[in-house]
Write a protein that binds this DNA or RNA. Structure first.
Lengths: 264, 264
DNA sequence: GTTCCGCATGAATCGATAG
DNA sequence: ACTATCGATTCATGCGGAA
């Protein structure tokens, strides 16, 4: 990242390695040292980000010794001390979270999407993530699983399927700061990073076409693919050769999404 | 609270006055002094709570100067330093959050329900809050009319009708740590407290009948009414005479919920 | 062409066992 | 005494193949 000029990135959206969770692939950052490890990286991120840009950090603290570790809370405080503004905390509701049963807790079905900026005024294109509502939702929701109806009745969510584009011009509403997105599982080879819908949503919200999106922990390139599909420029950084190759492969397979579908 | 004996409360569930948000009614605790104000109260809460009890704190940080204030994060760290275990953070997704539009953020549709305990081992009755599974919904609900679905839907989490009870143990699944509950939009006089469903869920999860539930910021008594309805004992503390009277009135109107419905 | 069913899969966590 | 590994538990999703 040191080769990047100052103030050149419009949006940073990333999902860094979670503390201790991928020790086999990333070497494992210990929770107690997580903040110390992250802060110098955040300083470079702040340097390359434009003043009216945004930094979206997808992260969730792990359970250590029966309680939630506090390194994410401490990271927010440390980033504030480093000059970042903690503008908002979006919530990713994972509709299909990992199974399991334990005596003292339920399955964890949400992650944080922390939104940091360099200044109070920043670029935001709210219309780009409007979601359907009203009568439209009633008819469209019929095609969703019954389970969605039961658990998430009448919710105006954060973007549904891709064919949503057909309904442009009908009743649309601004979303909330809660995103309802399923994790990608199934027949993918790579270890499922966050679902493409997640970076897509923030890319649509915080950038325009031809803007530059950076993912400093690229992994298999989900954020970069999302940026490419939406007609944005992208930059990704990845230390692991294996992940890098996979990202290149995924980006080669990626296709731009037709313009009229970008608005949704 | 100083009159309470040690280790007498099974569950503390409360929604304290949010910093600066109700200054007209509560005198307004400034965000910067929030932790300092809360810590001595938390010490008393820790004294009166049984060792295997739980403390559920419903709270959300306000926006101050364009960014989220950090007093809630600092409160968690301070409570940990005071000996509390930060066992879990449940998320309350407000299905119908208040309308509004701002240039730099969307409507806030979630609040934290922080779960603290005194020790790793605590009482938890997971079966009491089980919800229908996806398969159950797909196969069983298909034959019901839409009205039936809606009616059932509205009762998820707050006790089902009688005929649903027949299915207990067959097609029920444990919930996640995300609660989908609508805010109560009725024309109540008091400034909107949390919906009764929220304390009800935690009361069912963390207490048995005849246990003692405490709400140290009773307000209009929502938590106490929930406890009473579920056959628990309750204690509430409220400084404002006006709120206290309203709570007494609400408690006089409350009715116990028939036993067979408590289990769902 | 639909609808239905079966199956693999996942940023998980706990408790017990082994080093 | 402390850390590392492993089995058990559990459910929404999306795919492919079958009806």
């Amino acid at each position: 990242m040191s080769e990047f000029p100052d103030d050149c990135v419009d949006l940073i959206v990333t999902s860094p390695p979670y503390a201790d969770s991928r020790k086999k692939t990333y070497g494992g950052i210990h929770p107690d040292g997580y903040v110390e490890w992250f802060i110098p990286i955040a300083a470079e991120l702040k340097r390359v980000l434009k003043n009216d840009g945004s930094f979206v950090l997808n992260i969730k603290e792990r359970v250590v010794g029966g309680e939630r570790h506090t390194y994410v809370l401490e990271l927010v405080l440390a980033l504030k001390r480093a000059g970042w503004l903690w503008t908002e905390e979006y919530m990713w509701h994972k509709k299909n979270c990992s199974p399991g049963k334990w005596p003292n807790r339920f399955r964890d079905a949400w992650e944080r999407c922390l939104h940091f900026t360099k200044q109070k005024q920043f670029r935001m294109f709210q219309e780009n993530v409007m979601a359907p509502t009203g009568d439209w939702a009633k008819t469209r929701l019929k095609k969703l699983g019954d389970n969605d109806k039961i658990r998430l009745n009448s919710q105006v969510g954060s973007g549904f399927g891709k064919n949503i584009a057909n309904w442009v011009g009908r009743d649309m509403a601004y979303p909330t700061n809660v995103l309802h997105i399923a994790t990608e599982c199934g027949n993918k080879n790579h270890s499922a990073a966050f679902p493409k819908e997640l970076p897509s949503w923030f890319i649509k919200l915080f950038t325009a076409e031809d803007d530059l999106v950076l993912d400093p922990f690229m992994g298999s390139g989900t954020s970069c693919v999302a940026a490419y599909e939406l007609g944005r420029n992208y930059a990704g950084i990845e230390l692991k050769e294996e992940y890098y190759s996979e990202a290149v492969s995924n980006l080669n397979d990626a296709r731009r999404i037709p313009a009229q579908r970008k608005l949704i």
